[in-house]
Design a binder for these strands. Structure first.
Length: 865
RNA sequence: GAGCGAUUGGCGCAGUUGGUAGCGCGCUUCCUUCACACGGAAGAGGUCGUGGGUUCAAGUCCCGCAUCGCUCACCA
């Protein structure tokens, strides 16, 4: 126990208690002798290490921490790790700018490489000024920088007071993560769940990588309809189609209309010649063609959009793709273009970007008269990579996929069943998951043509001509893991066979970052590494996360768990809402309304910020106005109030408390508190931390404003058992309040706890109504406190109305109450007289609806004191 | 186009099985420094988006509509 300061304050509590918690291992996960039922495990979201933390992080991580602290106090051994998501594109970009390098996988590794820059000023370095380095050197820099970034994050999390066990941290690019990711992938391959396919793929031309459905977002883009005339080969005139992508005309393989469309029915099976290029293409029918769109007949290109892909696949059309990986038109015209004029036209767009090619095509079409009428400008949604800034294109590439139920009814049903089995908080978030699963359009594309990620652990044999045999991949021995196929050698080969006919080549692609993140329960829980730990924590109790990544992180984690173990990875999913600025817009960097969490914590104190976060329910968006952080100020006030109320309470003479709590008012207060404990506990169990806080806080203020005021006279200058009863009740209540508030304001509560108890409040037992009833006794008068509160308001009101100080003496006060209540009030009349400074207090039974002060006579001001 | 949320005093929110509308901020008036000025007391302020329905009784249940937000889908 420590001494109570004269002037308690919040400043400095973070440093003081943070150090003590660390030194004493307050939040350490103790596995010895535990069984699964004694453990509460949390699949913490690993923040992107190279990003920056924002208010939203503080918000949602606080939600989780309140649950962790509650469960810990209930006696659970809380497994609360922290991970860092440090692989992937964001890190690559940061490393490029920080060190002035870029990755060129064709270069050899340089031992002891020193980057041209260090530190950087955050500005982009032009690609031309970046020094090309080997993949291994690049990855080393990624690792170096993320370690530094992660240190900063950890400091912030510690200041915020997250009760994480820092011994349990992991990195998604760490060796253990690499091994687990590759092992899980190999298992997927062995079970036929992961496979390769050469197929049209959504492609980001800036990053030059394939992207998955889950990483797409629609953005409205200006575009325009161009009416193009196709010429019927039977000479019976033209067919006009509308297109927004005239630059893909050279890739046109057919025209398509709805099978029921009377206008085009007679034409199915006939052919037309494309404008400019003169390629003969068929007119085909497909139900996806919309009669009311454009002219009702569309051109199919390889590939303008995903519908083109469906048509191409289902109608067995040829592939005349003309877009390269760099987003430019390829140099060689498709074979189908055979006329001299056609080839000449193609030469004019070859090598051009989509944008320039479109301009050239429009000029040519206008010149030939095949572009009819006006170009009609429209705005329409276009698919983008969520991190990209150019529209996605579709190119044919070989990629790795993992089955996700899109084409496997049985798997999809199992995933939907798991969605129903999972307990969502709030429950309606389940619908988002179901929408996503039911809307999946293809298997999960997991290969990325990037560098800083988990390498896909395969090699391909080279045939006698030196061509890779992709459908016979060489898998690593499990003992080899983790492997980097671009530097490691498969069993049975030697390094000098790399790239040689009859030898092998390594896969250069890495996995989608979600392919690693989807294994966080396995990574953190010691899957295939520490079986004893894994059995203790898996399936996890809680997956906390944001609503925006249900389709990515939540879905992919659930999928991997289903594939690997056939079970849910967790029992509960707690989904936090957004932080909105005062205009109800989502906070974002570009809007310049992002506040740094470190500054917030510094300015207001961690408890205050936590209070703000915790006062919002799961799934509910919270607004935050940096200019006027009302909720934070209220939280600060609560924490300060607790310090002061505790100091006051602990200042009373406690020498006689052995007699227990005997006075009616004291018992009433404890009985009320017992109900609060029950209700708050129930709320916490239902993952409604905000309600637990509200219930506790609300009664805490009643405790301070009414009960404490009513009994302070008795506690301070009373005698014998009535005095001791007040002090005993105050101390018991304080102990309970401190524990109830500990999950929310861990610093102030720990400080207060140290004034009267041993150990950490965060390891103390969560209060129960039973302990309070044991002190208050059965059949306490639950409502007496609020009855007294009513009388007290009456007395105070009379003084306020007389513009007198609350300390003014009252010569006579007459309190009227219904007969039953009057009898109850008499039991605590002394307390009311004490706080009201009432010389003569009469409590009368009367025909009134509620407690009323019917008469009050104030003493003259000068008689005071 | 489909779905999911939200709509309660100026602002931010609560209202758990239907039973006479609550909290905080702000506002008004007052008090005060012997726990708390990062205080305290009293008070004003709402026909719960809208139109129907069920019920003795609806903020709460049912149906329609409106506005806002989000998710998914569509993308010639």
């Amino acid at each position: 126990m420590s001494a109570i300061p004269d002037k308690p304050q919040l400043e400095g509590l973070e440093e003081k208690w943070g150090a003590i918690w660390e030194a004493q291992g307050t939040y350490r996960f103790e596995r010895e002798g535990a069984d699964r039922d004694a453990v509460y495990s949390i699949d913490t979201p690993p923040p992107t290490a190279s990003g920056s933390l924002h208010v939203g992080h503080v918000f949602s991580y606080t939600h989780t921490d309140t649950v962790a602290r509650f469960q810990r106090m209930r006696g659970k051994r809380v497994f609360y790790p922290m991970g860092w998501d440090d692989n992937g594109l964001p890190t690559e970009r940061r490393v490029q700018n920080y060190y002035g390098v870029r990755c060129d996988p064709s270069l050899p590794y340089v031992d002891g490489f020193v980057p041209p820059h260090e530190g950087g000023d955050g500005k982009s370095i032009k690609a031309a000024d970046q020094q090309p380095i080997s993949r291994r050197n690049f990855i080393e820099l990624c690792e170096r920088l993320t370690v530094e970034d992660e240190k900063q994050f950890e400091d912030l999390w510690r200041t915020l007071g997250l009760s994480v066990d820092w011994a349990q941290s992991y990195r998604t690019i760490g060796q253990e993560s690499l091994r687990a990711s590759q092992l899980a992938f190999i298992r997927n391959v062995e079970r036929g769940e992961a496979y390769q396919a050469q197929a049209p793929t959504l492609w980001d031309v800036t990053f030059r990588t394939a992207v998955a459905q889950a990483e797409l977002e629609d953005r409205d883009q200006p575009s325009a309809y161009h009416a193009l005339a196709f010429h019927r080969t039977d000479g019976a005139g033209d067919i006009v189609i509308d297109t927004t992508r005239p630059e893909l005309l050279a890739a046109c393989v057919a025209l398509v209309a709805h099978p029921d469309d009377e206008r085009y029915k007679p034409l199915f099976g006939s052919t037309v010649r494309t404008p400019i290029f003169g390629v003969e293409v068929p007119i085909v029918a497909h139900h996806l063609a919309q009669q009311d769109k454009g002219t009702g007949i569309a051109m199919i290109c390889t590939f303008g959009d995903v519908t083109d892909v469906i048509w191409w696949r289902e109608l067995n059309l040829p592939n005349r793709a003309i877009l390269g990986f760099d987003g430019r038109i390829v140099s060689e015209a498709p074979e189908a273009i055979s006329t001299e004029a056609g080839l000449e036209a193609f030469a004019q767009i070859a090598g051009k970007t989509v944008f320039s090619a479109k301009q050239v095509m429009v000029e040519m079409l206008q010149a030939s008269g095949e572009l009819q009428g006006e170009i009609r400008k429209i705005t329409h949604p276009v698919k983008f990579f969520e991190k990209g800034d150019k529209p996605l294109e579709i190119v044919s590439t070989r990629q790795w996929y993992i089955k996700n139920g899109a084409r496997d009814e049985a798997l999809r049903e199992r995933l939907l069943a798991h969605g129903k089995e999972l307990e969502w908080h709030p429950d309606f978030m389940r619908v988002r998951y179901e929408n996503w699963v039911e809307g999946l359009s293809g298997d999960w594309l997991i290969s990325r043509q990037r560098f800083f990620g988990v390498p896909i652990p395969v090699w391909y044999p080279l045939d006698a001509d030196g061509n890779p045999v992709f459908d016979q991949p060489i898998m690593p021995e499990l003992s080899q893991l983790p492997v980097d196929p671009s530097s490691d050698v498969p069993a049975g080969f030697t390094e000098d066979q790399r790239g040689v006919a009859g030898g092998f080549q390594g896969e250069v692609d890495v996995m989608d970052t979600w392919a690693t993140s989807s294994l966080t329960p396995q990574l953190a829980g010691g899957w295939e590494r520490d079986q004893e730990l894994y059995d203790l924590v898996f399936p996890f109790d809680l997956r906390p996360q944001g609503q925006d990544i249900i389709r990515t992180w939540l879905f992919s984690t659930l999928l991997r768990s289903e594939l690997e173990s056939g079970t849910l990875p967790w029992r509960h999913a707690g989904i936090s809402g957004w932080i909105l600025d005062p205009d109800r817009k989502k906070m974002s960097k570009s809007k310049g309304n992002v506040v740094t969490p470190a500054g917030m914590l510094q300015q207001h104190g961690s408890d205050a910020v936590r209070y703000w976060a915790a006062s919002a329910k799961l799934g509910t968006d919270a607004s935050f106005d940096p200019q006027n952080p009302t909720q934070i100020k209220i939280g600060r006030r609560l924490a300060i109030k607790l310090l002061n109320a505790a100091k006051f309470t602990l200042g009373f003479d406690a020498s006689g408390v052995g007699g227990g709590v005997t006075e009616a008012l004291d018992r009433s207060m404890l009985a009320s508190l017992a109900k609060v404990v029950d209700d708050a506990t129930r709320a916490f169990e239902a993952y409604d931390h905000a309600r637990a806080l509200e219930l506790t806080e609300s009664f805490f203020w009643t405790f301070c404003d009414d009960y404490l005021e009513l009994v302070k006279e008795r506690a301070h200058s009373g005698e014998g058992q009535p005095q001791a009863s007040a002090v005993a009740a105050l101390r018991e209540a304080l102990s309970v309040f401190v524990r109830l508030l500990a999950p929310f304001i861990p610093y102030a509560t720990e400080e207060v706890w140290s004034w009267f108890a041993e150990g950490s409040v965060h390891q103390a037992q969560w209060p129960t109504s039973a302990e309070l009833i044991a002190v208050a006794g059965e059949e306490a008068d639950l409502g007496l406190l609020s009855l007294m509160g009513g009388a007290l308001i009456g007395v105070r009101g009379a003084k306020t109305a007389a513009k007198a100080s609350q300390k003014t003496q009252v010569e006579l006060a007459v309190v009227q109450a219904p007969e039953v209540d009057a009898a109850r009030l008499r039991l605590a009349a002394e307390d009311l007289a004490g706080v009201g400074r009432i010389t003569e207090l009469r409590i009368e039974a009367a025909d009134v609806a509620a407690v009323t002060v019917s008469e009050i006579v104030l003493a003259q001001a000068e008689t005071e004191g």
